[in-house]
């Protein structure tokens, strides 16, 4: 269980990026965090990753307080951030330095096969397309088998086709070990396709505005009416989150349930 308790962050330059953000996230759950720019989405993700320390509140994973990067938490950034001097295979095996060489090679080979890049094992990162590079980044993050995988707008730099392809691929990979996924995104479509729960944030300072449970069965049909209804629900929440006259609604939305009953 990943627990965020009143997490707040004020940067040394005085910017109040995040305020009293609380959420409980069950193992294997897929969470999408969505909101306008400057609402502290990335700040929150970096605090969960242990890359930045929260100024107030706490992040705990199975009762262990997270203050620095943790073995059970992986992260995928907006850019692939592959190490240009390592081959694709060595990039994927980067987090497995503690393993013996043959065990590492085995894990890397199966990850390469899983992301469909076996033929690129010896290639340099510069020889990959944007989508391929991001697939390598996903494999690198998943190979150490994290319990929580954080994704910071991982597909935003890709074209629509590649993005859709990688979203499906991510779900596929997720099904292998079912880690908790926390995805920061700008893309409402992406949030509704992937998430069990969408957390809508509002800016200045960033805080939780509304939670929307997406109880649609997977695989989700992007063209279905129900899908559209959920998208509209998230869009409405986003609009409301930017409207200063609307007060914070931190309760879990019942819209999803209402759709079913």
């Amino acid at each position: 269980m990943l627990a965020l308790k009143e997490v707040g962050k004020t940067y040394p330059n005085g910017v109040h990026a995040l305020e009293r953000f609380s959420a409980e996230i069950s193992p294997g759950e897929i969470i999408a965090i969505i909101g306008g720019s400057g609402c502290g989405k990335s700040t929150l993700l970096r605090a969960i990753a242990g890359l930045d320390r929260a100024s107030t509140g706490s992040v705990t994973l199975d009762n262990a307080v997270i203050t620095s990067p943790h073995a059970k938490i992986g992260i995928i950034f907006q850019e692939p951030r592959l190490l240009p001097w390592l081959s694709v295979a060595d990039n994927i095996g980067f987090g497995l330095a503690d393993l013996a060489a043959d065990a590492r090679a085995e894990r890397v080979a199966s990850a390469l096969a899983r992301v469909g890049l076996t033929d690129k094992a010896a290639a340099w990162p510069r020889e990959l397309s944007g989508g391929q590079a991001q697939r390598v980044a996903i494999a690198r993050a998943l190979v150490p088998q994290p319990e929580v995988l954080l994704l910071d707008e991982p597909f935003s730099a890709l074209d629509a086709f590649t993005r859709r392809d990688l979203q499906d691929h991510l779900l596929d990979l997720w099904a292998d070990t079912r880690p908790t996924l926390i995805l920061v995104t700008h893309d409402v479509d992406e949030a509704v396709v992937l998430a069990d729960r969408v957390l809508v944030m509002r800016p200045r300072p960033g805080r939780l505005f509304e939670q929307i449970t997406i109880n649609l069965a997977r695989p989700r049909d992007r063209k279905s009416e129900l899908f559209d209804t959920f998208k509209r629900r998230v869009l409405t929440a986003l609009d409301r989150s930017l409207d200063r006259s609307v007060r914070d609604v931190t309760d879990k939305s019942s819209a999803g349930e209402a759709m079913w009953w």
């Binding site: 990753a49 990067p69 951030r81 190490l83 001097w85 987090g95």
Partner: peptide
């Protein structure tokens, strides 16, 4: 951003120098 990758994988100081900084400055 590359150094941050090293941090995510919890590299120690010497490992960070050997695996990230040295190749990057080469």
């Amino acid at each position: 951003k590359i150094v941050e990758v090293g941090r995510v994988f919890r590299l120690s100081g010497p490992a960070m120098i050997r695996r990230i900084l040295l190749p990057a400055v080469l």
